[in-house]
Amino acid sequence: MRREIPLFITGVVGIVFVLQYFIPHFPFNKMNAWFSDWFSIVQACAIWLGVLNLLKISFQNIGRRKDDWGYAIVIVVSFLAISIVGFAEGEAFRDSGTSFTWLYDYIYTPLSSSMFAILAFFVASASYRAFRARNFEATLLLLAAFFVMLGRVPIGDVLTSFMPDQLQLSSLATWIMNFPQTAGQRAIMIGIALGIVSTSLRIILGVERSHLGGGD
């Protein structure tokens, strides 16, 4: 029963989502609306589950005085601070001037953008070590990256200012992005989509069961 019921649920829900595309009438349109609403509620609970699990692990680390347990306290305190503020401020928690917005603007945003920006250094360092024009393919990769990067900054056009507009680096970068890059991207996209379609079909038909985990 622990596997049959989930398989049945997966199959029915998947088939309804497929059918409502072809038959957008009662009862499939109604079921689709219900399932979509349920999906957003369950999705919220799934993320809540992740958050609660993070807290559980943090409390365990604090309780067992594991390495760096002090940072687990910081995690819990930061979580409680923004949560209490967010719940206390009610539905309008995101309005301008609220404490929640203050925390978002001056703590969350600087941290997240710095965290992503720091990758620029690691990407630069990794590319310096890895980028070598060893063969024709690697040279193509190197040149495409070089032209796109240089074409996105003003110095690119300054360096090629003696050339006609269409041959300047910004135009070349745009051409690479619009045509050869689009072609490769599209091939990858179509390949991925076909993979997703076949995997989805396997899941709906119950052939693929790995999401149910082990055991009976």
Binding site: A44, W48, V51, V74, I75, L80, S83, G86, F87, L103
Partner: peptide, 24 residues
């Protein structure tokens, strides 16, 4: 590590609150 821990806690709290008010 302190900033990283704050980021983890604040991100978790942000989504916890946002999903509560939007979805739940």
């Amino acid at each position: 590590k302190l900033c990283e821990a704050i980021f983890v806690g604040i991100s978790a709290g942000y989504w916890f609150v946002t999903l509560f008010w939007d979805n739940i």
